[in-house]
Design a protein around this nucleic acid. Structure first.
Length: 679
DNA sequence: ACAATGACCTACGACAT
DNA sequence: ATGTCGTAG
């Protein structure tokens, strides 16, 4: 327990004077990293927001009920969500409806919406009735997706666009990287943070923040680490947390006032801590895990509560070390973790139980796939019945595609997957969704049937216990998409145009030309017939940005796919802006700021380069980028846990290098890396 | 009172081929 | 590119 606190201002060493240190543990560099939401900034602030009993709240809101009434969401005979008032009665998932009503007679059990064969839309109905018709209905989570979208949209609207970084983590959770916004607010509030670093040296510590107590309002604060006192003066990380906490409170208030949903939130220096924090106090509360409280907070947990340790990997760790608590794991040396779990997983675990997690908030709010599925209670036994379900899946997926903006061609899926299960065996088939033509229900249906046919041909298909259909590989509409994929597609379409002969319009594509029988059969339904029908509906006009020339060109399709996948990663080669040339060649001989500054020029405090004022921002960006490259030869340690127990660990063979994450990750074997970013 | 459970539905990502 | 598996809520 006497391990040194992370930062230099440690009160560990009895200071000769009882006076407080006047310097912050944080530097100008840390502050600058903060403004760029860099995971390397120790000042980083991440929030996790989690809607309280989300499905239940959706129903309460939809029905206009008082949120104090106990309510549960029913699916067939089970309960899949229980609101907090109902939990007071000791209800939990998987009491049956009958048991629940016994414990809480006034409980409202609302059944989820369902699709019924032949329906053009899901609908709400009586729960008993739904259960009777379980064989002909499937549940729809659409109402919840809709609310989820509204909430997400509101949050994105509320946060300043310039600094927002929002990741949709699930239907009822988001991560916010508040670093950049917090940085801006801190500069506004504290003039002492604004200037350039003394001597132009970014490694100079910041001045200490005012030592007045911070006002944490009603936030739940986590207990401090041992040896830390509440009276210990705040540093800038505390200030950053406080500012973030204010933002989160405002977000939550907005969501409540505008949409009537309550949520819980966690605020911490990374995603893992934020996530643990949001679950700490529910409902309708927010928890701040200050850096000075991280150890205390973490040590109380079972590590199986930590993301990625809730499954097989967690079991493996439990088995290997005979404990499920964080605190029991802490004394285990990293070498032993690595030996037992593999290098990557071992060092990832070592960090994560110490509250370190450098994973980034992925600014992504759109879904990547959608799936519609049904488990068959008595299994089904015929193609006929299966086809009927495929119809429903397609209707479901198609209507969701419409909401996704596929009709306006904003985004469209590339592939379709069909999963099939009988008993323990599970099989899946997938196929590309023909490009360049409108996506129609009919087309999707025929494609789905073709996939099912493949499964049946493959082997025994009946009785079938589960079927699911999904579409994925969503691509941006071509407007905003400068990716080479889109470019080549365009080129290919053009080629297709040249090759295509009028014959295609008149006759179905000659089957003889096709090597693969499956392709042919499928593509026909997205072919010219569908196409002409679509265009007559005036749909294709929407896609003017990408000239899908109304040609179907089966033979050419195979040429198109090759490059598709290579959507290159972003790290643009950090080209120094013109004004930075000096910096490149003139090393860090920063010494004298001999700026007798003629007021028409800006002189960079770091490299003494002289430039017009309006190039200053760009130039600073250059240094920032350069710093990133210089100080973290390899990205500090994102090291996602190597999942896949079988391969990642044991053999220690890291030869799977060809795949996985881009470029930089390749330089993984870091020697004597310092990992100084936190200490 | 509470934890652990199992079935279900949806979604994401890694990896093997 | 297709298929399987692990994880999570």
């Amino acid at each position: 327990m006497s391990s040194p606190p992370p930062f230099a201002s440690s009160p560990n060493i009895p200071s000769p004077t009882t006076r407080l240190p006047r310097r912050s543990a944080y530097t100008y560099k840390h502050l600058s990293l903060l403004s760029h939401s860099s995971p390397a900034s120790p000042l980083r602030v991440i929030a996790h927001i989690d809607l309280d009993a989300f499905y239940a709240q959706c129903e309460t809101v939809r029905l206009g009920l008082s949120p104090t009434k106990p309510l549960a969401v029913q699916q067939w005979q089970g309960l899949i969500a229980i609101n907090y008032p109902a939990r007071e009665y000791g209800l939990n998932r998987h009491v049956t409806v009958a048991e629940a009503k016994e414990k809480c007679p006034e409980l409202i059990c609302q059944h989820v919406a369902t699709w019924k064969e032949g329906d053009t839309k899901w609908s709400y109905g009586d729960g008993d009735e739904a259960f009777k018709e379980i064989a002909s209905r499937k549940v729809s989570l659409d109402p919840y997706r809709l609310q989820s979208r509204r909430i997400l949209a509101l949050i994105k609207e509320f946060l300043p666009a310039e600094t927002q970084r929002v990741e949709k983590a699930s239907i009822d959770e988001v991560f916010l990287d508040l670093s950049a916004q917090v940085h801006g607010i801190m500069l506004e509030r504290y003039a002492e943070l604004r200037g350039p670093p003394p001597y132009g040296d970014p490694s100079e510590p910041l001045a200490r923040p005012p030592s007045t107590a911070l006002d944490w309002a009603a936030d739940a604060l986590v207990d401090l680490d041992e040896g830390r006192a509440e009276e210990e003066d705040p540093d800038w990380d505390d200030v950053a947390m406080l500012v973030a906490s204010e933002i989160v409170r405002d977000v939550r208030r907005e969501v409540f006032e505008k949409l009537h949903f309550t949520c819980s939130a966690g605020i911490g220096r990374n995603k893992m801590l934020a996530k643990l924090g949001s679950a700490h106090k529910k409902p309708n509360n927010q928890t701040v895990i200050r850096n000075r409280a991280v150890k205390q907070f973490m040590s109380g947990f079972k590590f199986t509560k930590i993301r990625n340790l809730g499954g097989k990997l967690g079991d493996e760790v439990v088995a290997a070390f005979n404990t499920d608590t964080v605190s029991d794991l802490l004394p285990i040396p990293i070498e032993q973790l690595k030996k037992t779990l593999g290098d990557d997983t071992g060092s990832w675990l070592y960090s994560i139980i110490r509250g370190e997690d450098s994973s980034e908030v992925n600014p992504r709010t759109q879904i990547k796939s959608m799936l519609s599925a049904k488990s068959f209670r008595p299994s089904i036994n015929s193609l006929d019945v299966a086809s009927k379900w495929l119809r429903i899946f397609v209707a479901d997926i198609h209507s969701r595609l419409v909401e996704e903006g596929v009709l306006e061609n904003k985004r469209r899926p590339k592939t379709m997957n069909l999963h099939h299960r009988q008993g323990a065996q599970t099989r899946s088939k997938s196929a590309p969704i023909p490009m360049g033509r409108a996506i129609t229900e009919e087309g999707l249906f025929e494609l789905a049937k073709a996939l099912l046919a493949q499964v049946i041909v493959d082997g025994r298909a009946w009785p079938c216990a589960n079927l699911s259909l999904s579409v994925g590989g969503f691509e941006e509409g071509v407007q905003g998409n400068k990716g080479i994929g889109g470019f080549l597609v365009r080129g290919d379409d053009a080629k297709a145009l040249q090759n295509a002969q009028p014959k295609d319009e008149a006759t179905p594509p000659p089957a003889a030309k096709r090597r693969r029988v499956d392709d042919g059969g499928i593509a026909r339904f997205f072919g010219s017939r569908e196409q002409s029908r679509e265009s007559s509906m005036g749909d294709s006009e929407h896609r003017h940005t990408m000239p899908h020339l109304a040609e179907q060109a089966d033979e050419n399709v195979k040429d198109t796919d090759i490059i598709q996948e290579e959507r290159t990663h972003e790290p643009d080669p950090l080209l120094p802006p013109p004004s930075a040339q000096v910096a490149d060649t003139a090393p860090t001989s920063v010494t004298a700021q001999d700026d007798q500054d003629p007021s028409d020029a800006y002189v960079c405090p770091r490299c003494a380069a002289r430039m017009p004022f309006d190039e200053q921002a760009e130039h600073e960006d250059f240094h920032f980028a350069q710093d990133l490259q210089n100080e973290q030869p390899t990205p500090p340690r994102p090291v996602p846990p190597a999942l896949k127990p079988s391969t990642a660990r044991g053999g220690g063979s890291t030869r799977g290098k060809g795949r996985g994450r881009p470029a930089v990750a390749a330089s993984a074997p870091e020697k004597g890396q310092k990992r100084l970013q936190f200490s």
